[in-house]
């Protein structure tokens, strides 16, 4: 009896599998393929896509990086280097500030651990992913913009 049951179960499971692939085959117009170079103008990446690392700046050219170098410690292959400077605040304190946020793009694996480790949420992986350059040196990037400052609520 279990012999016949085996045959029945195997046949029905095979048929349900074939039903699924048959359904996909019938709806072949819903293919997931992105024909990339053709559709680069309309291409929408998914929100969780991890592309270029950016230090977020607001309209007043202010970022949230306190220079704590948590991202530098978190980075598994050392593609982030934080160069810091000392700055005297109004009330006379000598505080650490970010001087240059160096991101070595050629070493980055886009693991997003820096974004996760940032205590102030200053970093983000952006959607841009076309990075081809002719010169390798241009892949060492400074992420903080010229003359940018730490946001006042973090000072």
């Amino acid at each position: 009896m279990s012999y016949l049951k085996d045959i029945y179960r195997s046949m029905s499971s095979m048929l349900s599998g074939m039903q699924l692939t048959g359904h996909y085959f019938m709806n072949f117009r819903k293919a997931e393929t992105e024909q990339y170079p053709d559709n680069r103008l309309t291409l929408k990446m998914s929100p969780r896509f991890k592309g270029e690392l950016t230090l977020l700046h607001n309209v007043q050219n202010m970022h949230k990086c306190t220079g704590c170098s948590a991202c530098q410690l978190a980075c598994p292959n050392g593609s982030i280097t934080i160069l810091e400077k000392r700055e005297l605040t109004e009330d006379g304190k000598n505080k650490k500030r970010l001087q240059t946020f160096v991101w070595q793009h050629s070493m980055c694996t886009f693991c997003s651990l820096c974004v996760d480790s940032c205590p102030t949420g200053a970093l983000k992986m952006e959607q841009r992913f076309e990075f081809t350059v002719a010169d390798r040196k241009t892949l060492t990037k400074t992420l903080n913009k010229e003359g940018s400052q730490l946001a006042p609520d973090l000072r």
Binding site: G22, Y24, F25, F28, A31, T33, Q35
Partner: peptide, 13 residues
């Protein structure tokens, strides 16, 4: 083409 259709791809085009 059949493989592509069953895996929701486009196949050679």
């Amino acid at each position: 083409k059949v493989a592509a259709g069953m895996q929701l791809r486009l196949g050679p085009n």
